[in-house]
């Protein structure tokens, strides 16, 4: 296995160990704790009164525009990082290219701003 792939094997091992620790703690808790569920106890908390209606009630997800913008910018960031690491090699050419790129990005943000999409209402 190459050194590069081994790195990700280490990452995988860390993930597995992390999950195992949580599982071990919860397992220890399962042995130690009591379990006496009553009807009132397993009811949802709603400030002490009986919960009303469906719990997964319809809510206005106001940030879906933000989520779309985020996906855009996040993809851009993926392109910006390799450029940043190799900027010295690209020189002025790379700088002008990225300036145009970021300018277009900013135009997009400005457009969303002008369209009043950045307001949380």
């Amino acid at each position: 296995m190459s050194e590069f792939l081994r790195t990700y094997l280490t990452v995988g091992i860390f993930g597995a160990v992390g999950a195992a620790i949580v599982a071990a703690l919860l397992g220890a808790g399962r042995i130690l704790r009591p379990s006496r569920p009553t009807a009132a106890k397993v009811e949802n908390y709603e400030s002490g009164v009986d919960p009303i209606g469906d719990m997964w009630s319809q809510a206005n997800i106001r940030y879906y525009v933000f989520a779309l913008l985020f996906v855009l910018f996040d993809v851009e960031a993926v392109f910006i990082f390799p450029w940043a690491a190799r900027l010295e090699a690209y020189g002025v050419f790379g700088l002008v290219e990225m300036a145009i790129f970021i300018f277009i990005l900013l135009l997009g943000l400005l457009y969303a701003w002008r369209k009043r999409m950045l307001r949380w209402v």
Binding site: N44, Y45, E46, P51, M55, W56, S57, A59, I61, R62, Y63, F66, A67, F70, F73, D74, A77
Partner: peptide, 23 residues
């Protein structure tokens, strides 16, 4: 997963906040 109104609102708020500040 909690199926509680408070939890759902909190979870949605947290998501909106975390993706906004990720950038």
């Amino acid at each position: 997963g909690s199926a509680s109104k408070y939890s759902l609102l909190g979870g949605l708020r947290a998501t909106g906040q975390l993706i906004a500040y990720e950038l």
